[in-house]
Write a protein that binds this DNA or RNA. Structure first.
Lengths: 115, 115
DNA sequence: CAGGATCCACAATGATACTG
DNA sequence: CAGTATCATTGTGGATCCTG
């Protein structure tokens, strides 16, 4: 499929949609953490240095609402939660790989990005 | 290549880099317009309903600085400019297709996105 | 441990008017 | 035509403190 008809973008545009889903600052990093398997809140926090608890919780909530990840709460004391990608969330892997590939091309080209 | 080592993300992460390059609201739509060939400022403006002249100019300038597109000015009266993707910019096509594909999967799944 | 509640700061966008 | 200047507004993120 090489047609540009893949991109009927304007509103309801799948590209826009994707940008809205994963365009927030830490979202891709969270997804990346989960690609290797389910993780707990604190594991994610440790795995993503610099993220604040508020943002982490916010992104996780959004991803859950969009059914890109599944949250499991174990009513233990202290509480335990687990996050894992849904099958739809797994499809983001391809997207993240594409982003990684393009980013590497840019790096290889030696482009300065620091605004 | 199936390794997760493709994603050594943290800082200097290619995924983050890509997000910074195309994460702005209208960037992907602008790139999409240019995939089909070079276009002028006013053509882009017409092709992307809702974008303000300031934002369009800002995005174009960023894309040019990042060497993702090339700007050509014809010193005619009235002035004429043309924008076209560089070879590096062309590589964004793959990324945009991946975004489109994922977005379509999400749409097919019937996910509600309107926050 | 896993977050929720607050408050602040600033970047990003939008709208409009204006100019070489 | 191809932008720039200005202003208002919102979104998004950061830091901190607090709680079941």
């Amino acid at each position: 499929m090489d047609s540009l008809k893949v991109l009927p973008c304007d509103d309801g545009c799948p590209v826009r949609l994707t940008a809205e889903l994963v365009g927030h600052k830490w979202t891709t990093l969270i997804v990346r953490e989960l690609i290797s398997g389910k993780k707990r809140y604190s594991e994610l926090q440790r795995g993503i240095p610099g993220i604040s608890p508020r943002i982490l919780a916010e992104r996780l909530k959004q991803l859950e609402q969009h059914q890109l990840l599944k949250k499991t709460i174990f009513p233990t004391i202290p509480p335990t939660t687990e996050y894992e990608l849904t099958s739809l969330g797994q499809e983001m892997k391809q997207l993240i790989y594409a982003m990684a590939a393009f980013g590497q091309s840019v790096q290889a080209a030696g482009i300065e990005v620091a605004a």
